[in-house]
Design a protein around this nucleic acid. Structure first.
Length: 197
DNA sequence: AACAACCTCAACCGCATCAGA
DNA sequence: GTCTGATGCGGTTGAGGTTGT
């Protein structure tokens, strides 16, 4: 959807207005004000940003809008085959840890990947008749998904002794903690996954 | 043209975790 | 050690666009 910025939103959920705070779709003007506030204060201190910008929106809402829409370098729509393949593979490894998966896909947001998975890929898998992944949001719906996934990873690893348990979980987290992102990562991870899976 | 089914995606909610007082 | 507010994450909802009949 073309989404693009300016029209932030004409779409989206319309809910009964809260007594005080603005809710629902963001307007272009709100976007502009939020962007300005973030420019000044940085993408942290959301309560301050929310207050300063005079948007009458909660901090959470401001943060979400920034993270999923206004943040620079966000790529929208048109998930490529390569990206889709990567999502599938990463999901197999990580489960519903969208933020981690998103971190491996430059310029994609966790929300976008989650949306994409929830409909697109889930449907694909169902069509193919597999349930092995079993992490589709509606059937699992648990925050412990990733923990289960980690358990699976542990279970699949040869010697899952008590002692190694936490280490393994940490290893997984550490392994996927690519805090120093660079453009070649996608390629690197893709290559790695070719071997792993 | 009208309607229904399908699809997309922005935005909300609730909960967990973290950090500072 | 406990409390509290901030932050981050995953699940879910539902409006609106698109496509098919």
């Amino acid at each position: 959807m073309a989404g693009a910025t300016a029209n932030a939103s004409i779409k989206g959920k319309q809910r009964p207005p809260n007594k005080k705070l603005n809710r629902g779709p963001w307007t272009a003007e709100e976007d502009r004000r939020l962007a300005k506030a973030v420019d000044i204060d940085g993408p942290k201190q959301w309560p301050i940003i929310a207050a300063k910008s005079g948007l009458n929106r909660c901090a959470k809402s401001c943060r979400l809008r920034w993270m999923n829409y206004l943040r620079p370098n966000i790529k929208r729509g048109n998930i490529s085959d390569q990206e889709e393949d990567l999502i599938i593979r990463l999901h197999k490894l990580l489960g519903n840890r969208w933020s981690l998966i998103a971190a491996r896909l430059p310029s994609r947001t966790d929300n976008e990947i989650k949306n994409y998975w929830n409909y697109h890929l889930r449907k694909k898998k169902l069509d193919k008749g597999f349930n092995d992944v079993g992490n589709s949001t509606r059937d699992m719906g648990s925050k412990n998904d990733h923990k289960n996934e980690e358990k699976n990873i542990r279970a699949n690893s040869s010697n899952g002794g008590e002692e190694d348990e936490k280490a393994t979980v940490d290893d997984v987290d550490d392994f996927f903690d690519f805090s120093n992102e660079n453009p070649s990562t996608l390629e690197w991870v893709t290559k790695f996954l070719e071997y792993s899976g």
